[in-house]
Design a protein around this nucleic acid. Structure first.
Lengths: 196, 196, 196, 196
DNA sequence: CATGAATGAGTTTTCATTCAT
DNA sequence: GATGAATGAAAACTCATTCAT
């Protein structure tokens, strides 16, 4: 058992190293030696733990998505313990999203990279699709608690997630003086809640 | 005189070739020979017309943005000739955006690539920033004609553009069965107009 | 006739341009476009006036050697008009050599380049050999006027010319603080004259 | 431990290969593949052992100079064991120089190349300057043992080294029929010794 | 498991040369 | 004569991958 754990630890160490690298350079400009250096392991080892460079990428993307799914589920468990009503829950959800996901600049940068990879690579795209579907579904269910129209809830969910991703993009591409990211996020979310 | 025109024509021919290539592969995986092949010119010529590979990219991005700015201005001129009231104008604007920009899949794919490049390259980022600023400003001015609060109009503009970019992303990443892109676009835009 | 003169003028203009370029970069790192730019002519023209890049080099080296041969002959004509005795003549010769040839830094730099080219290119080597032979012969004849041993005179000539070339090299490679080039030149030449 | 030695051995193998190549072509015309072929290693390896082509050159020049410094020191140790008087020592020194350095044609050819590189490259020039300074200093000290005037000794040293370098040049550029290199060397050196 | 030397395909770039206008 | 577009060979360099130790 510890063997497998060590093995997984080392792999995660390498995936974390890639995560670090992606703050500096896009994946295509990141060499295996770059990743090995960041992980402080010999570059030859990367070929022991991963089939090839693309395999590192695929596992990395799964790792990132899993990580944030876990983060979300942990938050959900914690939040459900508290006695929020439906509306408050949605507000809490947006708060969590804004602070931990959308305005998390390191994460947003990585996601812009993942979008691009997914746009050209159907395997990655499938993984990402699944994540977005789950995300939209989750939000949809929450909105359903405060509205009567499931179809409308789903559409608003999709639109809201699109909006959040657009904001994540802007947080990386635009300078803070263009507009106040936080204000636009919360202001618009308030309108969305009201419109339901 | 024709010399200069020929020169520009050839450059545009090469930039169009890159545009084509970017439907298949990201820029980093597109070789200069790939572009030359698509443009049906000798690869050495690319170094005659452009300083280096990055120069092709920079000029390409300027070219794409310029192209769509021209497209927009042409539409604006045409639309102003017709006697729309303010509200109708905004609706027409959204129609144009949806059909020509956001749901133009070739364009969206290219823009996902440009986002990624901009995330890592500050020169490209500056160019893109300027384009987004102008876009948000333009929409802001239109919204100002139907509302009394310029600050609110600007925030809604920013949010709307973020939403459109998120939808462009989804049109590439998600499969059409996830939700109806067009319906979500128009439905949400209707809400935005109502909320003003 | 003027045609031919124009033609020669243009060629010389190009050769002078190469001379300029060689102050910056060795010949192998100087492109035809570099030379064309320095000569302020279109690069295609260089292929009209010269067979190829090596032809420019060959003609350039002939041109440089001819130029300094002319310079020397002009000096000789001028000096012979004055009534110097044999010993004074030799001193005058050394003065001329030191100031116009050996310590002419632009020339020395070019000559280091020519040596290197000659070391690998037998055509150029032949041209250079001939020049050195003539130079040694000329000095030999002068020394013969003050000594009785022609064989010894020839050997001292050869050694002297070798010494001058070594000093030309040092004037480019060494910094002035290493030793006083001029003092070493004149001091050693005095010894040579005395030793005859 | 053997690892480091192997590594150095391989590097030296490559530097020796360059040494061989420089007998045929100047450095600028020698490709990395040429060097790899001569070293009988894969060309990619050269980029493993050296940062780039210039790095090979720099290390090569240091290697050559070091090699001949070692050669000289070994000779010095050997010669000091024998009981020569000061004058004999200087004669032995000239003998060593003539046979092992100045009239070593492979070495002289390489040095003409190094001169040229140094003329245009200040890094290389610094390395070469240092070597010439040491050489002149060494000779100067030897001459000081048989003369009373240190300043004069230093000037004669500088002149002598210049003369030797000029003779090295001539041994490559001129044909043996021009004059007897060995005779001129020894004859002139005899005069130098007498003149002290 | 770990290391680092070795391989070779592929990439960008430079440039002499040609040639139509 | 002059121009500048076009060609293609060759260069330096990168890097994923393999593999012996």
């Amino acid at each position: 058992m510890p063997r497998i754990k060590d093995h997984e630890d080392k792999k995660n160490q390498i995936l974390e190293a890639l995560n670090q690298c992606l703050q500096e350079k896009p994946f295509d400009q990141t060499s295996i030696k770059d990743i090995a250096r960041a992980a402080d392991v010999n570059h030859g080892l990367l070929h022991y733990y991963f089939k090839n460079k693309e395999d590192i990428l695929t596992q990395y993307i799964k790792y990132v998505i899993d990580h944030y799914k876990t983060l979300f589920n942990d938050w959900l468990t914690a939040i459900e313990a508290q006695n929020f009503n439906e509306k408050e829950l949605i507000e809490e959800f947006f708060d969590f999203m804004n602070s931990r996901i959308t305005l998390n600049k390191k994460l947003s940068k990585v996601f812009i990279e993942i979008w691009e990879i997914a746009a050209y690579n159907s395997n990655i795209r499938s993984i990402l699709q699944q994540a977005y579907r789950e995300w939209i579904d989750t939000l949809s269910e929450m909105l359903n608690t405060v509205t009567k129209d499931p179809a409308a809830a789903r559409q608003v969910s999709a639109a809201t997630v699109a909006f959040l991703e657009g904001m994540a993009l802007f947080s990386i591409i635009l300078t803070p003086d263009t507009f106040d990211f936080n204000q636009v996020l919360t202001g618009f979310q308030k309108k969305i809640i009201e419109s339901l």
